[in-house]
Write a protein that binds this DNA or RNA. Sequence first.
DNA 1: CGCGCGCTTGACTAACTTCAAAGATGGTGG
DNA 2: CCACCATCTTTGAAGTTAGTCAAGCGCGCG
Lengths: 231, 231
Amino acid sequence: MLATVLHPETAAAGCLAAEVLAAARDDGGLSALDRIGSVITLRRDRALFREGDSAKDCHKVLTGALRSCRLLPDGRRHIGEFLLPGDFIGLDLDATRRFTAEAVSDATLMRYPQVAVERLIQQQPKLGKRLLAEVWNGLSAAQAQLLLLGRKNAVERVASFLLLMAQRAGDGDHFCLPMTRNDIADHLGLTTETVSRTFGQLKSQGVIRLAASSQVVLRDRVELEALAEAA
Amino acid sequence: MLATVLHPETAAAGCLAAEVLAAARDDGGLSALDRIGSVITLRRDRALFREGDSAKDCHKVLTGALRSCRLLPDGRRHIGEFLLPGDFIGLDLDATRRFTAEAVSDATLMRYPQVAVERLIQQQPKLGKRLLAEVWNGLSAAQAQLLLLGRKNAVERVASFLLLMAQRAGDGDHFCLPMTRNDIADHLGLTTETVSRTFGQLKSQGVIRLAASSQVVLRDRVELEALAEAA
DNA sequence: CGCGCGCTTGACTAACTTCAAAGATGGTGG
DNA sequence: CCACCATCTTTGAAGTTAGTCAAGCGCGCG
């Protein structure tokens, strides 16, 4: 899920795949973006944009967290991904939003007008490569999620989710889940109750500890990885 | 799921999102690709490549069909997508394959060496735009599949699948499913039996007719769309 | 014609959902 | 600073959907 700003002229002529991947590892000119962005704040549960809106900016999460979600006509909800600090939103080619983006917690974001980003990319090819790399990351994550939703059971889903969140939170064994159990359920294709019961099960097995319902401590990462059945 | 050849230099400097989308509608220089490709054939159930292989070419399906799949350690399988004539495979940035691609039926493909495609893209910016548009289509399809796997029931999954296949087969009401019920099940996160029973249910409701087990006739597309709960 | 593979069907089971209610948590206002 | 209230989480019991196991069918190929 990436950039309306990600156009092919993005990078200098002649660059190779390896170079794009390399760009993903350094700043890639990302800081230059900030000069053309404006900071906005978003209260919990407010929408940044909704499915069907026209897309004229892209955003980067600075603090807090967002969710990208889609609804079925009868109200069933699916959360495609959670967006944490550093993540980009709306970095794709569509003129129309394909999902709704809402704040999971109070959040601050940087807003970049599409046209300004396009201009900047032309001046700084490295930036384009960096943003393109972000797109590939998103695609890769989506594929892992397909496997999870298609073939994993409740324990495996929750275990996979916890490991991913731990990694995104900076790879410590102690981290915070800014979203509710219901949000997690809608992301993992489960119900609130099943998520809660699964947390309880992992807790009683000694794999995790909950300092508070949103404060997770990994007590046995190896066991958690085994439970996640990482393919 | 797209191109190891899709590098940012792909398009001419200054192109806009609208232009990329426009390129997707015409040939976009796609025919020029064929001059650098070689035709290969693949027998049913043979792998084009496997997860973990290094990626040095990309391919386009000419005839037949393929599946992209991933396995869990205990053998559970998930099929990410079916690749039909005209679809590109391996059009992404990764040096390593993230999934296995196998022939669902005997197939012929065009193979394009990565480096040759990169060279060609530099000469024909339009081609790069066209291929990038393919990537967005794939991303969009993956998102729809997340909703399906996360929140739809068996009937909705099968109905959605049939509508999509009908559309990809050229929008007639009569089409062929080259893959087995088991393949469909692994794509929809169900079992062979559930897929079979759901086909039977749709048949007895008069929504579809099966000329043969792989020959589907849509008898009531409107009803099928209602069953798919298209969001 | 017979064999094998894939498809279908049936009976039973398991996993997850649904429904219901009690127990935490945290934010707000008195 | 504490009490209250809404919201979120947890837990329990019953229900439902899809999975599992098992067997028969039918098409297509040799």
